[in-house]
Simulated scan of single mutants.
Amino acid sequence: MMHFHRYYDVDIVNGPGTRCTLFVAGCEHQCRGCYNQSTWRLDSGAPFTLQHEERLIADLQDSRIPRQGLSLSGGDPLHPHNVPHIRRLVKRVRAECPGKDIWLWTGYQRAELNRAQREVLDYIDVLIDGRFIEAQRDTTLRWRGSRNQIIWDLSKERG
């Protein structure tokens, strides 16, 4: 079972527009200067249950507070333990929440993703990849913490 630390049903910081944001547990990178060290352990936080998933889907579908999409961060959503759970979640969001975009932050570089991790990319719109490097920290960057991190617009690549 995947664990999570925080869920924001209304978020305007982690991606464009108003969003739902889920911070999952588990990160192998353990970057020096990480602002979210409490999420590193896989068993930290609370289990992400079907009830949590149902609420997230309902929030994305809520027309009273329109959300542009879902942001997935952590920890690392592409930690090998999290991949099957994240893949199921993004497939479900794609199927049940048409028109919502999905953004995902990972410490892995796109080129180093394994097959299972790359399968998740088929269901997301934007990938922000790369470890946080304290020496390249830049607070002026939008949606990134350090200059080495790359924003990949996967929806444009797919055409």
Rank of each mutant, 00 (worst) to 15 (best):
E119P: 08
I150S: 11
I86Y: 04
I12R: 08
D76N: 11
A116Q: 14
C31A: 09
Q117P: 10
L22V: 14
P66R: 11
Y123L: 04
W103T: 13
G17K: 04
T140L: 12
R118F: 03
V24P: 06
Y35L: 15
R64A: 14
V10Q: 02
I57V: 14
R115N: 12
D59R: 12
L113Y: 10
F48P: 01
A111F: 10
S71Y: 05
Q136M: 09
T49Q: 04
F48M: 05
W105L: 14
A95T: 08
C20H: 01
R118N: 15
G99Y: 11
F48S: 01
R32A: 15
F48Y: 14
D59E: 10
R19C: 07
H81Y: 12
Q61L: 04
G45A: 03
A46S: 10
T39Y: 12
H81K: 07
I86P: 02
T18E: 05
W152Y: 14
P77R: 01
Y108D: 14
R92W: 07
V83C: 03
G75I: 03
R110V: 06
E53Y: 00
E96G: 00
R144S: 05
E119F: 01
Y108L: 12
G74S: 03
T106G: 06
P84W: 02
A116K: 10
W143R: 04
E53G: 09
A58N: 05
V13W: 11
V10F: 06
L78G: 00
H85Y: 13
E54H: 04
T49G: 00
D11M: 01
R88P: 00
G15P: 09
P47R: 10
Q117H: 09
Q117T: 11
S71C: 06
R64M: 04
G107V: 03
N14S: 04
R55M: 11
A46D: 10
I102Y: 03
G75D: 03
D138M: 08
G130S: 06
L72G: 01
I150K: 15
H29L: 09
V120L: 08
P77Q: 04
G99P: 07
D125N: 13
Q68W: 10
W103Y: 14
Q51E: 13
I102A: 00
H81S: 09
R32L: 15
R142L: 15
E112D: 15
E53Q: 12
I150H: 15
T106A: 07
R147G: 02
R41K: 12
G17M: 07
Q68Y: 10
N114Q: 14
F23Y: 15
L78V: 09
A95Q: 11
D62R: 07
P16A: 14
F48R: 09
N148S: 13
I124H: 07
G145N: 10
R142N: 08
R94A: 02
H81D: 07
T140F: 03
D122Q: 15
C34A: 11
L127I: 12
E54Y: 05
L121G: 08
A135E: 15
R147E: 10
R92S: 02
D138W: 05
G26M: 08
G15V: 11
A46V: 12
E53V: 06
L113V: 12
G130M: 05
G99H: 09
H85N: 02
E112I: 15
K100M: 00
F132E: 11
S63E: 15
L89A: 06
D153W: 13
G130Q: 12
